[in-house]
Computed example of a mutant assay.
Amino acid sequence: MMINETKARSVFKKVQQVHQEYRAYVIGGVPVLLSVEDLYRVVSQMYGLTINKTQVIFDGEFVRGLVERYPERVEVRVRSSQAVVWKRFTAVKELCHVIIDEKEDWSTDGVETIRDLLVEYFMTDGEEAAKVSQSEMLAEIAAIELLYPFEYRDGDLKKLAAQHTTIAKIADQHGIPGVMVGRALEEHYHANVASMLWTELDEAA
C-alpha cells in the first residue's frame, strides 16, 4: 500500500506549523508529555474554529473516535470505554483531520471507511490507498508526529538497542499506546519516511 507522496509532504508541513505554534504557546519550554488541551486551543486559534471534545458511549471494535464538521465549529467524539492513552491518541488523531484534511478527503460514510481501511491495511501490492483510507492513515501518522516528536526517536532507538529503555517506558513518557511507539520506530517508517520528510523541511527552513 502506498500513501500519496505529495499529500504526505503536505501533512508533515502542517504538523511542523502546529509544532511551531504549540511551542510558541507553551510557556516554560515544551514538556515531553504533550498537553492535548493546549493542542486543541492552538489548533482552534490557527484555524479560527470552535473545537469541542467530548467522551461518548458507543460500541465498536474499530471505531475509537469521530469528527463532525460544521461551518464554524468541529465536534470531536472520543469513545469513553478505552484506556487513557488511547483516549489521548484518539483525541489528537481526530483533531489531525481538522489540520490535514481537504474537502475531498471528508467522509460521510463511516461504515464504508472502516471496511475500506480493513482492506487497505492488508494490501501488499503497492496500490495507492483510496482517499478516505489515506486520510485516516495520514491522520494517524500526524498524531504520532505530534505526540511523539521525531527529535526523540534517534536517542530512543539507541537506548532500546542498549537495553536502557523499553517500548512501554517510551510510551508512558509520551502518554501514547505502545503500538504507536512501535510504528514510529519501525525501521522503514523512521528511516525512509519520517527522517526524509523532516530533513527536507529542516533544509527548506
Rank of each mutant, 00 (worst) to 15 (best):
N4I: 07
K14A: 15
V15T: 04
Q16W: 12
E21P: 01
A24N: 15
Y25I: 05
G29H: 05
P31K: 00
V36T: 08
D38K: 08
Y40K: 07
R41Q: 08
V43F: 01
S44T: 12
Q45W: 06
Y47S: 13
G48W: 00
G48M: 03
Q55W: 09
E61I: 09
R64H: 15
G65N: 05
E68T: 11
E68V: 13
R69K: 12
E72G: 11
S80M: 08
S81K: 10
V84Y: 06
K87C: 06
F89C: 04
F89M: 03
V92A: 02
C96E: 04
V98Y: 01
I99A: 00
I100H: 02
K103Y: 15
D105P: 03
V111G: 08
T113P: 00
D116A: 14
T124D: 13
A129W: 03
A130Y: 06
K131G: 09
S133M: 06
M137W: 14
L138P: 01
A139H: 01
A139F: 02
E140D: 13
L147K: 00
Y152A: 03
D156G: 01
K158H: 12
K158Y: 04
K158C: 11
H164Q: 15
T166G: 10
T166W: 14
I167Q: 03
I170T: 01
Q173L: 14
H174F: 10
G178K: 02
M180D: 04
G182N: 12
R183Y: 15
A191K: 08
N192G: 13
T199W: 06
L201Q: 07
D202A: 15
A204P: 04
A205C: 10
